Simulated assay, not measured.
Amino acid sequence: MKTKEHRLGVSEINLVTRHLKLEPSDEETILAAVSDIDELYGMDSVFFDARKWRLYLAYDATRLCLDCIEEILKKHAVKISQGWWNRFKEEHYRFVDQNVKDNARQEPWSCHQTPPTERRKR
């Protein structure tokens, strides 16, 4: 099985993909924002579809979150569509990003581990 090479700082196990619809605005401004987003540590790929006004993102959720990306879009005066479906997806993306971060910090635990040999009865 062949695995895809990811950018530095991106772990495949924490990789998430996002699709955001943007409000129509100046395409050069959007491309400048996309260029800044592409430079973020932990970003695997970013693509803007000018025909559908959608931003496609793939990033490591332990290093980045949707709020970091929205901050850059806000800096460039690019607005995310405020339709109900887009707002719903944004909240779900925030929840999943936080869940990935929390799970990455959590130490795995199992009650089915064998006891240490020194405490085992003979």
Rank of each mutant, 00 (worst) to 15 (best):
L15I: 04
P108Y: 04
I37N: 05
I72T: 01
F95P: 00
K75T: 03
G42H: 07
C111T: 03
N99V: 11
C111W: 09
R105W: 04
L31E: 11
L66D: 09
N103H: 08
D102I: 10
E12N: 06
R54P: 00
H6F: 15
E107G: 04
D26H: 06
I69D: 02
Q113V: 04
E71H: 06
A58P: 00
S110I: 08
S110N: 12
R87Y: 02
A61C: 00
T114Y: 09
L55M: 09
S35C: 08
S110T: 15
L40E: 12
I30W: 08
H6L: 15
E90D: 04
V100S: 02
R94V: 01
L57F: 12
I80F: 07
C68V: 02
P108A: 02
K21V: 13
L31W: 12
Q106P: 02
T62D: 03
L66W: 13
Y41R: 11
R63I: 01
E90F: 04
K2C: 00
R87Q: 10
C68G: 03
I72W: 05
R105M: 10
F47K: 14
T114V: 06
N14G: 05
R120Q: 04
L31M: 14
T3R: 05
L15V: 05
T117L: 15
T3L: 09
V96L: 05
D36H: 11
G9V: 06
D60T: 07
A77C: 06
L22M: 07
V34A: 13
Y59Q: 01
E5R: 15
E5Q: 15
Y59K: 02
F47T: 10
E28P: 01
L57M: 12
E70H: 08
E12W: 01
V96W: 03
N14W: 11
H76V: 00
V10W: 02
C111P: 10
K52H: 13
V34Q: 14
D38F: 06
L31S: 06
K74G: 04
S110Y: 10
H112V: 02
V96F: 07
L31D: 06
Q82C: 03
P108F: 05
E118H: 15
R94W: 00
F48W: 15
E39I: 00
K89N: 11
T114H: 09
K75V: 00
W53H: 15
H19K: 14
V78Q: 03
E90G: 05
I30Y: 07
R119T: 12
D97Q: 07
V100N: 04
